[in-house]
């Protein structure tokens, strides 16, 4: 399965909402063991919310080996690569934290949100 990211989100891959569009298309196929190609040809500007929402959260259900085997990233600019690497390092750290620690972090944020 190939996804042309430019056709999905345009020239700017920057927002959480656009990242979620990508995630919703690739999450299930990757879980099922399919190979997915994200083709970034023509996408020019990148920012961390897009990769956090689109790719970083895949670590919740998939390990590095499965992602390296199943998710192919092509035509991503040097800057896009740097942003993606940074986001993925952070995501790995988040999901490597103990479930209790992660739940504690999430609970604080959730309580805060509902109190606002």
């Amino acid at each position: 399965m190939q996804i042309k990211v430019k056709e999905l989100v345009g020239e700017n891959a920057m927002t959480k909402a656009d990242g979620e569009k990508v995630y919703s298309l690739i999450h299930e196929p990757l879980i099922e063991g399919q190979t997915v190609e994200l083709d970034f040809e023509g996408v020019e500007v990148f920012a961390s919310p897009f990769f956090n929402a689109g790719v970083g959260r895949l670590y919740a259900d998939l390990q590095s080996d499965a992602l390296n085997a199943g998710l192919k990233i092509n035509h991503l600019s040097s800057f896009g690569q740097r942003v993606l690497h940074r986001v993925l390092d952070n995501a790995k750290e988040y999901y490597l934290a103990s479930p209790a620690h992660r739940q504690a972090i999430d609970r604080i944020v959730q309580d805060t949100a509902s109190a606002m």
Binding site: A47, R86, Y94, V109, T112, M116
Partner: peptide, 16 residues
């Protein structure tokens, strides 16, 4: 990050 939506890792923008 202090983002108010859950639940996946965030942040890195200011760091970059």
């Amino acid at each position: 990050t202090t983002a108010r939506e859950l639940p996946f890792p965030r942040g890195m923008g200011l760091d970059l």
